[in-house]
């Protein structure tokens, strides 16, 4: 993730858009107090996204910490790219940028786990949930997690961002670095796969 991509169509959140540029300027000046405020404002939501993506609270915490440290590292470049008071700086959405970083880091972690699992990479991505995931879903208490985990990474991200975090499609598409049409297609396939997995789960019960 670079300093680019800060113009996310995010709704105004706790960190007001006008103050995001100022926060970046102060982060660039190595103001640790500002970083603490950013953590207070954004960390909970970022952690929620990462946790729903990975299913592991400790892993999610690592992802959030890495995203925040990236913000700390890239703040000087961001401050130079979006100087305070400029029109571009007024459009900065720090929360959106952090969501994109966390989503990408979560997808990277999931892919790394899949590579380390030793299974062969399919030639074409199968949207249908895997049998073991469905079987796992038959166990009591893990149904939702199994349904989510059965989805491919990007479909999982689409469900997490739009269903659980209730982000608008445009903002979720930006977090996944996709255009709106492509994201809507991805979301459609994700819901269909989710329904199929749910149907299989119901059949097991």
């Amino acid at each position: 993730m670079t300093a680019a991509g800060l113009h996310l169509p995010s709704a105004p959140d706790a960190a007001a858009s006008g103050s995001d540029a100022t926060q970046i300027q102060r982060l660039a000046a190595r103001d640790a107090g500002v970083l603490r405020r950013v953590v207070d404002v954004h960390a909970a939501r970022l952690h929620r996204i990462a946790w729903r993506m990975t299913g592991d609270a400790a892993e999610a915490e690592d992802i959030v910490q890495e995203a925040l440290l990236r913000l700390w590292d890239l703040a000087p470049a961001m401050a130079a790219r979006y100087p305070a008071g400029s029109r571009r700086a007024a459009d900065i959405r720090l929360g959106g940028w952090l969501q994109r970083v966390v989503t990408n880091l979560s997808i990277d972690r999931l892919r790394r786990i899949r590579r380390l699992s030793g299974t062969d990479v399919p030639e074409r991505m199968d949207d249908a949930p895997l049998a073991d995931a469905v079987a796992e879903a038959c166990e009591e208490g893990a149904r939702a997690r199994a349904l989510i985990a059965a989805l491919p990474e990007r479909q999982r991200a689409a469900i997490v961002l739009t269903y659980y975090e209730e982000l608008p499609n445009a903002e979720a598409a930006a977090a996944l670095d996709m255009n709106l049409k492509a994201f809507e297609s991805l979301l459609h396939r994700a819901r269909a796969a989710l329904r199929l997995a749910f149907a299989v789960q119901e059949g097991c019960r």
């Binding site: 739009t162 269903y163 209730e166 982000l167 608008p168 499609n169 809507e184 297609s185 979301l187 459609h188 396939r189 994700a190 819901r191 269909a192 989710l194 329904r195 199929l196």
Partner: peptide
């Protein structure tokens, strides 16, 4: 969220 509606991929 209200996304694409359809028999399988519609909103939940």
């Amino acid at each position: 969220n209200l996304g694409i509606k359809g028999p399988d991929g519609g909103p939940i």
